[in-house]
Design a protein around this nucleic acid. Structure first.
Lengths: 135, 135
DNA sequence: AGCGAGTTGCGAGTAATTCGCACAAGTTAA
DNA sequence: TTAACTTGTGCGAATTACTCGCAACTCGCT
């Protein structure tokens, strides 16, 4: 057998719960643990919230998902593949927009040059007011 | 009397608790509600946590303080006067550094031009790795 | 002084996340 | 294929960070 499951490659066991959590994150784009749990329950109703939390953490450790803080309390998770955008959180309507990371390239460069600070653009929440709410 | 207390000017009552919360925020630079409470207790030991939370909220409503989310769970508050910098949160050591807002001017402009998104730079947490931890 | 709305303290209530543990399931090797 | 080992799951309790309701209090006005 040439192919191993991606979870096996990371040294993790392949359980239905774990696969479902991962695919839920991928399907949802970005979601809170609660939302992931809800999504997973569509195919695996008995799943426990703790299991979702633990798997999100585990998957984050091996780099398959990542979390961001979008301003309010909870963290939101998204798949590692689509770390190509940053999040624009609107403080008025609560919507979350995307923007390609290169709009920040200059900014990141400034921080690196002037402060030696390596910005993690993917873990980036930008707070403000979206175009729709500005009106 | 020509002068009114700044809290009076905002239509708030002047209570020792309220004053202490405000000056604690100013003294601390940026702090969690918990840290503010601790600071206040140095001069007013009996203060209740609820009171701190309520005053932070009240003071925020009248624009004397503001809060930011620095990546982990809780909010941190800082005085409105010193909204002249953004926060560089180090994911490795947890330290919070400052940088003047103009390093982001270009970035903010980009978002405004390309997406109509008005970034609130003061409510801004930048996540990454600080110079000390990069080494 | 005295009145009334705004505040405080306190305790209960909530929401989100973590932990400990016993049992079940995925893997590996024989 | 099966026994044995190890990791993962479910569940309930524990924790943490806040919020709320309410009675007592006090600030600011007359």
């Amino acid at each position: 057998m040439a192919e191993k499951h991606e979870l096996h490659q990371k040294g993790l066991r392949l359980t239905p719960q774990r696969e479902l959590v991962l695919s839920a994150v991928r399907a949802l784009g970005h979601a809170t643990p609660e939302e992931v749990a809800e999504k997973v329950r569509q195919t695996h109703p008995g799943i426990n919230l703790s299991t979702v939390y633990r798997n999100l953490e585990t998957l984050e450790n091996v780099g398959l998902v990542q979390h961001t803080h979008l301003g309010h309390g909870g963290a939101t998770y998204h798949a590692a593949e689509e770390l190509t955008h940053l999040h624009l959180v609107c403080g008025t309507c609560g919507s979350v927009g995307d923007a390609p990371i290169d709009v920040a390239a200059n900014f990141v460069q400034n921080l690196s040059d002037d402060y030696g600070f390596k910005t993690d653009v993917t873990h980036f929440a930008v707070y403000g007011t979206c175009a729709a709410c500005v009106k």
